[in-house]
Design a protein around this nucleic acid. Structure first.
Lengths: 204, 204
DNA sequence: GATGCTACCAAACAAGCGATTGCTATGGCA
DNA sequence: TGCCATAGCAATCGCTTGTTTGGTAGCATC
């Protein structure tokens, strides 16, 4: 803004020599895929660069370190989850049990069918990350979980039910699915419905 | 036993030059602690050997490879879980809901307060292990989970409840606790009671 | 037609890794 | 006394890691 004078439009420097902006995106995709498949430590800069036909050193033009690359991938992963439940809640009746079931189904399908970016976000993965980045990661995750806390607060649960334990129990059930899920047997919708049905006690 | 003839007791070769058998045990303890703290990849042979005042090469007298060491630690971890629930089930009334709650409490206290060995067993960890050892690990874990399958089979659940989904849901809730548990707020018993109460619908 | 920026190559760096080898001091047993 | 297994030291090998540095082809602008 405030360039004003004459036709001096220096701001967008075009940036399209050969591969343009999508080389960076290609690196992100490759990194997400390889992190998901072999873990952070198990993936080398050489692997990632090689996957897009680039030399290891060249990657440092786009990302200043391996951690920086990881962070970019992670953020994209969290974003997928947020978009998914935002969309699900947008088109669902406000009835509390229906709402949380829809959110769970969205969470599950992102986690299970959401591609490599989503897979990175799971704590099973985070464990393998360098400790320095954990605070940043947790901040992002907490923001996401807050959506679920709101949905749980709206549920007509008995007074004896600890809503915080309810949340961690539910999240555990959902995220654990990564360890056993295989395509074809159950759909994310089925799983979400079954889990919510088990937790929904007393009046049907 | 059955040494019999004369005083030829060659079988136990004494093995007590300087540190005896407990040097190997010390290595196991150190490995468990460091694997738990920094992951498999994050821990070097140098770290482990150094922690017990040994040079890296000397470790290879006790274990033939880093993977071998990992496997020994893992097995000890699974054993802890099996002992814990065996003991819990031994001193618990046969009433199905009480039984599974006791097993869950035992599982949780092993997972959360059971020390470094137990921590290794969690799939959050297994993810970082070299792929070659996974089949062995899964065999051990499956055997353990079968105890819970039996307990779940005995529960008076409605016909609409998928007992397999019940199992994975419960295991998810339990194992997820590793990500949020901090000593002092809830005890493993409290958590187990709360989780089971949530799942125990209909008749009180 | 010189300048400058983008996007990359080519080569190397220091550090750390798991593992191997040859050797040695110790102590029980014959 | 001689023998052999135990338990470890000392040194090193070959390899991979994340990262840095210097250079350069291609294009846009002045």
């Amino acid at each position: 803004m405030s360039v004003a004078t004459k036709t001096r439009i220096k701001e967008p420097p075009k940036a399209e020599a050969r591969g343009g902006e999508n080389r960076r995106e290609a690196l992100l995709d490759a990194a997400a895929a390889m992190f998901a498949a072999k873990g952070y430590d198990g993936t080398s800069i050489r692997d990632i660069a090689g996957a897009v036909g680039m030399l290891p050193g060249s990657l440092y033009y786009h990302f200043k370190s391996k951690e920086d690359l990881l962070l970019a991938v992670y953020r994209k992963g969290v974003a997928r989850f947020e978009e998914a439940i935002a969309e699900a809640l947008g088109q669902t009746p406000a009835e509390p049990w229906h709402a949380i079931e829809a959110a769970c189904a969205a969470h599950l399908s992102t986690l299970l069918d959401g591609g490599d970016y989503a897979r990175i976000v799971s704590p099973e993965f985070v464990r393998s990350f360098p400790p320095e980045v954990l605070p940043v990661l947790n901040t992002e995750r907490d923001r996401y979980e807050r959506h679920f806390e709101k949905l749980i607060a709206a549920l007509p649960l008995g007074a004896e039910t600890d809503r915080w334990l309810f949340k961690v129990s539910l999240f555990g059930s959902l995220n654990w699915s990564q360890t056993w899920y295989r395509k074809g047997h159950y759909t994310p919708r089925d799983i979400a419905a079954a889990f919510i049905a088990m937790l929904r006690n007393k009046e049907a």
